Computed example of a mutant assay.
Amino acid sequence: MSRFDQLPPGDLFKALEVASPSDDLPQINALLDAVRFNEGGLLPAIAQQFDSGEVLMMAWMNREALEETLTTQRVCYYSRSRQKLWRKGETSGQQQQLKSAALDCDGDTLLLQVDQTGPACHTGRRSCFYVSLSNEHAAITSEPLIDPATLYGKK
């Protein structure tokens, strides 16, 4: 039994601030109970290519998507527009294989280290972060790797 097991979920992440790598943490379900999903039951998840560090995308997960991702090691998000689970690559084939997952210090944001197959962005680009901003102008920083019409089978 961990010293964290007796804490109310709302106190867990505060207590983890002073934890060390040698501490026994609570069971995964207790930790997920303490995750600070927003009022819609969602958690922002940032996907980063595990070997290059490239930030690929940000999407949302509900608890079910997070649990499925941890269980299957294939990344699953929650689609706000479709109001259902969205298994990355189910229509495009551009899947994300989970390498690791980490919560931030507040338990309200998730970082996913993934192995991305092809482009991560629905525009056909490797990353969704292709519009560069400065104080004077914006610029497109990459070309699509695949035409989105081809990627999603549209004519």
Rank of each mutant, 00 (worst) to 15 (best):
S2A: 12
F4P: 07
L7T: 09
G10T: 14
D11T: 08
D11N: 13
L12D: 10
F13S: 10
K14Y: 12
V18K: 15
V18H: 15
S22N: 11
D24C: 14
P26N: 09
P26E: 03
N29W: 07
A30R: 15
D33K: 03
A34D: 07
A34H: 10
E39A: 15
E39Y: 08
G40Q: 14
G41Y: 06
L43F: 01
L43N: 01
A47N: 10
F50V: 11
F50Y: 15
V55S: 09
L56H: 02
N62Y: 03
E64C: 01
A65Y: 02
A65K: 06
E67L: 15
E67H: 08
T69I: 00
C76S: 14
C76N: 09
Y77M: 10
Y77G: 01
R80K: 12
S81H: 05
R82F: 02
Q83Y: 03
K84D: 14
L85V: 05
L85H: 05
G93H: 04
Q94M: 15
Q94Y: 05
L98S: 03
L98P: 03
L98V: 06
K99F: 09
K99T: 12
A101K: 03
A102C: 09
L103K: 07
L103N: 03
L103S: 07
C105L: 04
G107T: 07
G107S: 08
V114R: 02
D115P: 07
D115F: 10
D115I: 11
Q116L: 05
Q116W: 00
Q116H: 08
H122Q: 02
T123N: 02
T123W: 02
T123A: 09
R125Q: 02
R125V: 02
S127V: 00
C128V: 07
C128Q: 07
C128D: 08
S132M: 12
S132Q: 13
N135A: 12
H137C: 14
A138H: 11
A139W: 05
T141D: 13
S142L: 01
E143I: 08
P144F: 00
T150C: 08
L151G: 07
K154A: 10
